[in-house]
Design a protein around this nucleic acid. Sequence first.
DNA 1: CTGAAAGCGCTAACAC
DNA 2: GTGTTAGCGCTTTCAG
Lengths: 337, 337
Amino acid sequence: MTTIEDVARLAGLSRTTVSRVINNHPYVSKGKKKQVLDAMDKLGYVPNSAARSLRNQRTGVIAVLIPRVMNPFFSQLIEILETAASEKDYQLIICQTQYSKKKELAYLNLLKTRQVDGVILTSMANEWKTIAPFLEYGPIILCNEYDEQASVPMVFIDQFEAGYSATKHLIEQGHERIAYCCGKYTSNVADAREEGFKKALAEANLPFLEEYAFRSAFQSADGKQVFYDIQEMIEKPTAIFTGSDELAAGIISEAKKKGWRIPEDLAVVGFDNQMITELMDPMITTIHQPLEEMGSKAIAVILEKIHTKNYSHKEIHQFYMNLIVRESTVARKLVSL
Amino acid sequence: MTTIEDVARLAGLSRTTVSRVINNHPYVSKGKKKQVLDAMDKLGYVPNSAARSLRNQRTGVIAVLIPRVMNPFFSQLIEILETAASEKDYQLIICQTQYSKKKELAYLNLLKTRQVDGVILTSMANEWKTIAPFLEYGPIILCNEYDEQASVPMVFIDQFEAGYSATKHLIEQGHERIAYCCGKYTSNVADAREEGFKKALAEANLPFLEEYAFRSAFQSADGKQVFYDIQEMIEKPTAIFTGSDELAAGIISEAKKKGWRIPEDLAVVGFDNQMITELMDPMITTIHQPLEEMGSKAIAVILEKIHTKNYSHKEIHQFYMNLIVRESTVARKLVSL
DNA sequence: CTGAAAGCGCTAACAC
DNA sequence: GTGTTAGCGCTTTCAG
């Protein structure tokens, strides 16, 4: 392993001067700078990052805690965060919590061990008061999550509005029996959606029926089950609002296999505007989130926190979504193209 | 920040003893061990990982180089690798190369800077001879990729057989004009598939037609374009072998929109057995890879390399895939359930 | 069984 | 402009 010492020796200069060149400090004469650069080049020298971290008390790494990488929504978020971070010369380390409180805490420990400069939580398994103590060791921000209690920056979309506008759209199509189907993992997120859903119903004087509420559906496989449950009902809903596109796709796919027509027999709204919404037949009406903007904002915000070292400060960065109407809610001939 | 020194002071012992407790060394008396543990507990002490890395010359981190996180195949692979690594107390850092040679090299530098103990390449943008020099700094293995030249462990499936069996299946359905559609990014992978494809054709005395070969299609959007190209042909293929399920889904979705019947007008084979194969209508015939096994093997192999420090040694760990026949190649009533 | 001391590779006062 | 030196927090000889 070649060290700064080797470079200094070969260049006939001190470690300090070499260090100054590495870090682009001023006050190094042109000639010596070149000597250093040449020596570094000849030796193929690269600074040891553990030594730098130890010395500088910073790592250049940010941890992103994510429930599951395979969830397309989250993998898209990772991609965006990674791109934004790498522009700022920060590495991301991806940590899968699998919705486990224990794993989440284990990964928050990265902050304590100084393995990372900050943590981005994209979902919260623990309560805020359990997480708060980690703020002593570095910044934590929420991206795609909201918590009333949390005293940190939060980047998220208005889930209430999302639930509201999707439901309103269904009501405008003449539906009166509308089911609600949304996983409860991102706790507060799901709650806000449900509030929006309820508000739209209330405005139209429609009742919220508990038997039409499915609150533990996450993936496409769960969508299948939801469809079976609906199929068993005496008085079936004619439309359903779902918390993710895969869920919607699962319901649609299974419904079609059983001979249901979409949207005539069941109108379905997805969430996230993933690729699959345009591949399915019918194409899925969904909610589009401005993920790119959210991702860039999240990185900008956490870097700012890292630099200012003021971690405990509530900040709201709210974004707006929009409804994209496709065939799964509006009979094909009526879709505006 | 609380250090080992603080713990030692509070426990009334030396740093050495504390270190011994942390690292579970023998020869620490029960009483003193308890004193140390109590002090650590009281201070909420956690060892600084940069200091440990510097001292131990190991980081406990492995880099996974991946073209794009959003590609469901790769995100599935990440999930599996992450799970396997975390069982062994290793962190994964996910690096998106975006198929760029430059980015790939930049990330290989993590090995030089000692930020990671090893690198898993899931795809190669550069030639092996460009990558080889990095072996001086730590182990590199290929997972899901193969290279004749590479002198390192390689974990992959028999892509030749995959291409062969999928094509043979199409031929058995009576097809004589079969198109080939596979992105070329994972260079050797695609080549092997193509060889298998050609062999199956040759065995059936069918010609390989260059105009039926699409070699730069990756995502579902590319699938659309491929379909348009096919639509323009005078003599259209009646079946198509594709390199990914999204590609297949893109083709099917677009074909249906133009009124084609699948598989009657065009039979389609996907690759990877992703979720989407069962959501589409028709469900997609595809190739299933034993990804779990590959991922576990990859982690086991790289950990072994990290420990033995013998990096330059070719090892073949080949896995077998199997064809899953669904509706996109066999008319619905004939699918065996 | 326990501790003193050296040093992993790097950077930043501080002197000159 | 440049060099000397003192650590960052940890582990590991080596000596007792």
